[in-house]
């Protein structure tokens, strides 16, 4: 489903990704861990199409060359990025924003528009599960939200947009234990045979609740070790430095 080969990315002359290879099949959940500066967020940004990187190599999703597409066209293909730092858009209603996004993506997939009432019903169901107050719908996108509220809002958007490839960039960072559980359950609910997920995290705790099929360690701009969820436990026990030192050069 997602195929990445020899992916390289640099910004302002500095190499961040340095020949990264990764394949994620349909229905699989992969976690990427790694020390600060390893290139985790860059990988998420490059896959989603953020400006400013010089990119080479290959990244296809179901045979579609992602790197050739504008960010909005990648979204239409089904790529979703849950932002590490969700952006505030003052004056734009959360519900309006989300419905616009859902309908734009639906239109590109040849699906009919969802009316305001139907949309509201579905949104409220998802919000109840995420323990979000429905009042969030009428507030401006992320404006004045706490860190935890922003992250829940990302999961709400993901739930509504029903992506094929969900990339979660440190969605667990800055969450308290309760919020972490709610977010993890939200992610777990979206696990499905026709959806791939790439979870970027610093902390193995999230992976207790969302058990990944594979765990990869990213270091120096490439994947240096892969394993199953036991790798996350090992990292937690020993830290990156000694875990990676055990890897043959």
């Amino acid at each position: 489903m997602l195929h990445i080969a020899n992916l390289r990315a640099s910004i302002a002359g500095k190499t961040i990704l340095n020949g990264l290879d990764l394949d994620i099949a349909a229905g699989e959940v992969h976690a990427i861990m790694g020390p600060n500066g390893a290139g985790k967020s860059t990988l998420a940004n490059v896959l989603a199409g953020r400006d400013g990187y010089v990119v080479s190599g290959e990244a296809t999703f179901e045979g579609v060359d992602l790197l050739a597409l504008a960010p909005e066209d990648r979204a239409a293909v089904g790529v979703f990025l849950a932002f590490q730092h969700p952006v505030e858009i003052p004056g734009v209603g959360n519900m309006y924003f989300l419905r616009s996004a859902v309908n734009v993506v639906r239109a590109k997939r040849g699906l009919p528009e969802i009316g305001a009432m139907d949309f509201l019903g579905v949104a409220k169901e998802h919000m109840a599960r995420l323990e979000m107050d429905p009042a969030f719908l009428s507030r401006s996108v992320n404006a004045g939200f706490s860190g935890g509220e922003k992250k829940r809002n990302e999961i709400l958007q993901m739930s509504m947009l029903e992506p094929r490839l969900a990339i979660l960039d440190e969605t667990d960072s800055g969450l308290d234990i309760d919020a972490l559980r709610i977010v993890a359950q939200g992610i777990e609910r979206l696990r499905s045979p026709d959806r791939s997920m790439l979870i970027i995290t610093h902390h193995p705790r999230l992976l207790d609740d969302v058990r990944p099929d594979y765990v990869h360690v990213l270091s120096g701009g490439r994947i240096v070790r892969s394993g199953d969820h036991h790798l996350a436990a090992e990292l937690e026990a020993n830290g990156y430095t000694s875990t990676l030192a055990a890897v043959p050069a």
Binding site: E72, A75, L81, V87, E88, V104
Partner: peptide, 13 residues
Amino acid sequence: EDQLFYCRQRGLT
């Protein structure tokens, strides 16, 4: 650029 990218990632032109 952050705002624009955020919106575009959600599918808006």
